[in-house]
Amino acid sequence: MTILPALGITLTTFAFMEFWAWFMHKFVQHGPLWFLHRSHHVRHPHPVERNDLFFLIYGGISAALFITGDDGGRWWFWVGVGIAAYGTVYFFVHDVLIHGRLRFWKKSKHPYLRALNMAHKTHHKTDGRDGSQEFGLLWVSPKYLRLARQQAAAKQEKIKSTVE
Rank of each mutant, 00 (worst) to 15 (best):
2 T>H: 13
5 P>G: 10
9 I>K: 15
11 L>P: 00
12 T>C: 08
15 A>G: 04
18 E>Q: 10
18 E>Y: 07
21 A>V: 05
22 W>S: 01
27 F>Y: 15
29 Q>R: 13
30 H>Y: 12
33 L>D: 01
37 H>K: 07
39 S>E: 04
41 H>V: 01
47 P>Q: 08
49 E>T: 15
49 E>D: 15
50 R>N: 03
55 F>Y: 15
57 I>Q: 09
57 I>N: 04
59 G>M: 06
62 S>K: 10
70 D>Y: 11
72 G>Y: 08
73 G>Q: 15
75 W>R: 15
76 W>C: 10
77 F>S: 14
78 W>Q: 11
84 A>T: 08
90 Y>I: 01
91 F>N: 11
96 V>F: 08
97 L>M: 13
100 G>Q: 14
103 R>Q: 09
104 F>H: 04
106 K>Q: 10
107 K>D: 09
107 K>T: 08
110 H>C: 01
111 P>A: 03
111 P>C: 01
111 P>L: 04
112 Y>E: 03
113 L>W: 10
115 A>F: 08
118 M>N: 00
118 M>G: 00
120 H>E: 13
121 K>Y: 13
128 G>P: 05
131 G>H: 05
131 G>T: 02
136 G>W: 05
136 G>S: 06
137 L>I: 03
138 L>T: 06
140 V>N: 01
144 Y>L: 02
144 Y>H: 10
144 Y>D: 03
145 L>G: 03
148 A>L: 03
148 A>E: 05
150 Q>Y: 07
154 A>R: 14
156 Q>E: 09
157 E>V: 06
158 K>D: 04
161 S>E: 08
161 S>R: 11
